[in-house]
Amino acid sequence: MEESTTSTGHRSIEHAGAWALAHVRHRGRSFPALVQHNRVLDLSTRDEVGRPASPSALLQDWDAMLPKLERLAETIGDWIDLAGLQVLSPVEPRQIFQAGANYRTHVLDLVVAHHDGADGRTPEQVRADAAAHMDERLALPPFVFQGLPTAICGPFDDVILPYGAEQPDFELELAAVIGRTARRVPVDQALDYVAGWTIVNDITLREKVFRKDSPGLGADWLASKNHPTFLPVGPVLVPRDALPDPGDLRVTLRLNGQVMQDASTSELIFDVARLVAHCSEVATLLPGDLLLTGSPAGNGLAHGRLLRAGDRMDSTISGLGAQSNLCIPEASEGTA
């Protein structure tokens, strides 16, 4: 995918803690950077951290790099003004794990929205049945699927609505960035494997989630969630210690200035520790991987207002900065 030339302009990146990790482009060159007070320090020139070419290099040895980054955050000089720089995704994951149906109200809204009435149940009955199922889920493993890294774009890049898309929707989510290789991690140790937090908007084509031609096959996550630019990430990675408790962060998305999603991560059915532990039971988590925790209620489908070309999404999560993405149409059929 061709990179956008969108920059931060005059936007301010406010984040928790004394510093955050970013990936920026300046004068035709991209590099990992510390962000502090809307200025950046080019880490690719710093011997202290091995002159890394990307944030991935830092995350491969995060435990060793973290104290060095903390010391560099106190460095005087060599800082660049953030304004005008292009901000890329702060991570380049090899794997993306996506928790689904992880906010109670969101699940109930979607079940009702997708119900076609063929079974004779009223919307109230459908919601009550789904609520009972939610209670049963707590005794079961979380529901997690995988996404593709090629869907990632920057936090201020344009989101391309594919040719022929009927129901493009937004799903703002807290994401954990893995900082250590993890396999069969117990829940009480799971957060030790998290390097930090970032913002993700998991754009979804609602009409593609369930195959009408083969309903028995289940959800088609490839077709519904993995188009180029469908995963704006960033603007920064905030270290875990700056937000040690991700269990009460505000998740807010505005569409053209109107609040659509506004919830707390305290509403998660399965918390971050449970999700990390579950994923590590199935797969080996790698440094730099992304774990999306699910999206709260207030998606476009529930509001009856899906994304259209010309829409702007402004998204924030407490302490993690903000995204702003303009929706544009794909140029023509077959254009990626």
Rank of each mutant, 00 (worst) to 15 (best):
S89C: 15
T252D: 06
P55Y: 10
A113C: 13
A283Y: 12
S214W: 13
D169K: 05
T293P: 01
L268F: 09
L34F: 00
A182S: 11
E267P: 10
D42P: 08
A309F: 08
A57C: 05
L237Q: 00
E281R: 12
L41S: 09
A322T: 04
M1L: 12
V251Y: 02
G120Q: 07
P67G: 02
G298P: 01
V185Q: 01
W62T: 06
A16G: 13
D129K: 03
V177C: 11
G120T: 09
A57M: 12
A277T: 14
G50H: 05
D271P: 15
T6I: 15
R27E: 15
D42V: 06
D135I: 11
A195G: 01
A263N: 12
A130K: 14
R312L: 07
P235E: 02
I178V: 15
A165V: 02
G117N: 08
E124Y: 03
F31M: 05
G84W: 13
R127G: 08
V209F: 08
E171Y: 01
P55S: 12
L249V: 00
E3N: 13
A219C: 00
L58E: 06
R51L: 12
Q60A: 15
Y163H: 01
V126Q: 06
Q261I: 05
P228C: 14
Q98H: 09
I96K: 06
V126S: 13
I80C: 14
E3V: 09
L222S: 11
T335Q: 15
G319A: 08
R240M: 04
M65S: 14
A182R: 03
L205Q: 15
G100K: 00
G196F: 01
G179T: 06
E48N: 02
K212T: 15
D63I: 15
F143G: 03
G196C: 04
D314R: 13
S30A: 07
V200Q: 04
L231N: 04
Q323G: 01
P186S: 11
T8N: 11
R94E: 14
N38W: 11
V24S: 14
D116K: 09
S54A: 12
P141I: 00
L69N: 03
E70H: 11
V238K: 00
A33G: 10
